[in-house]
Design a protein around this nucleic acid. Structure first.
Length: 274
DNA sequence: AGCCAGGAAAGCG
DNA sequence: CGCTTTCATGGC
């Protein structure tokens, strides 16, 4: 669980200790939650109330479907197997679509540590406060709240040029101009990606991150500098862009996005670089 | 001090 | 079209 929360999918979980148990505190949708690994692959979770919408198990993808997913990965591939074995417990988190979309808009050309800072600032200034386990934690602000805040106030959160994109996207949704819920009814992967690319500041990579981490579309394969690096190193792939995208989706199969996350983590934490 | 970060839009030819 | 430049900010 700890590796999953630190794997660059989600940016708001912070270390927290409850009665000498070390874990993380954050929100699952609107519900404050404490999570801790307590040995033997057991997970401790504390919530002030039951979240009827999304359970801890759903959020962390702790389902038996894992076995089926892993069986679709390329088996005769030592490089991928070592990426998989590097962190076998890694899961894809199922985040709220808006929260995921907005967070990745703020992620462009930023390091993970700084994306965390931005996420925390936005939550503290514009989100709803929950007092939980002797601590204040904040849910992710709604599109309405960010639209109302205005571009200047967002820029003041160290967003830089991303403030404009976040503001325009929040406004498009808050005004009813674009209904984010429509995305769930789009079957086709390309159409879904194009739908997300309507938003200012959203290109192919951020659209794929949103589909993978925020829409439960496990075939989406986001390509960033780390993935380009790892595919170049592990598979001698010198192609880029759309060609690399097509190869990866085809090679890693129906759950390519899941495979992507193992490769990303292997590249970033495993110090694969030169 | 220089380089780069989970990129995308705008500006070229 | 495909390629290049520009856009802020902070950590190392």
């Amino acid at each position: 669980m700890a590796a999953t929360l630190n794997s660059g999918q989600v940016f708001h979980w912070v270390p927290h200790t409850v009665e000498d148990v070390e874990g993380f505190i954050g929100t699952i949708h609107e519900t404050p939650t404490f999570l801790a690994d307590i040995g033997n692959e057991n997970l401790l979770s504390i919530q002030p109330r039951l979240d009827s919408e999304v359970t801890v198990e759903t959020y962390l993808s702790l389902s038996p479907k894992e076995v089926e997913i892993r069986s679709t990965f390329p088996s005769d591939d030592p490089f991928f197997q070592s990426a998989l074995n590097y962190c076998p417990g890694l899961r894809i988190i199922r985040q709220p679509t808006w929260e995921c979309l907005a967070t990745f808009i703020t992620s462009s050309m930023k390091q993970v540590a700084h994306i965390r800072d931005i996420s925390q600032t936005l939550r503290q200034r514009f989100g709803i406060r929950h007092d939980f386990l002797n601590r204040s934690i904040y849910s992710y602000p709604t599109p309405e709240k960010l639209a109302e805040a205005g571009e200047a106030a967002l820029r003041d959160c160290a967003l830089g040029y991303r403030a404009k994109s976040l503001y325009l996207t929040a406004t498009a949704i808050a005004s009813g101009d674009i209904n984010l819920a429509d995305l769930a009814h789009i079957e086709d992967h390309k159409e879904a990606r194009d739908f997300l690319c309507q938003f200012h500041g959203v290109g192919e990579k951020i659209a794929n991150c949103t589909l993978l981490f925020g829409c439960n579309r496990l075939g989406a394969f986001p390509i960033d500098v780390w993935i380009e690096r790892v595919l170049r190193k592990g598979y001698r792939k010198r192609i880029k862009g759309a060609k690399l995208q097509k190869w990866a989706e085809s090679y890693f199969g129906p759950y390519a996005g899941y495979a992507q996350q193992f490769l990303f983590h292997y590249a970033r934490v495993g110090r694969l670089g030169e």
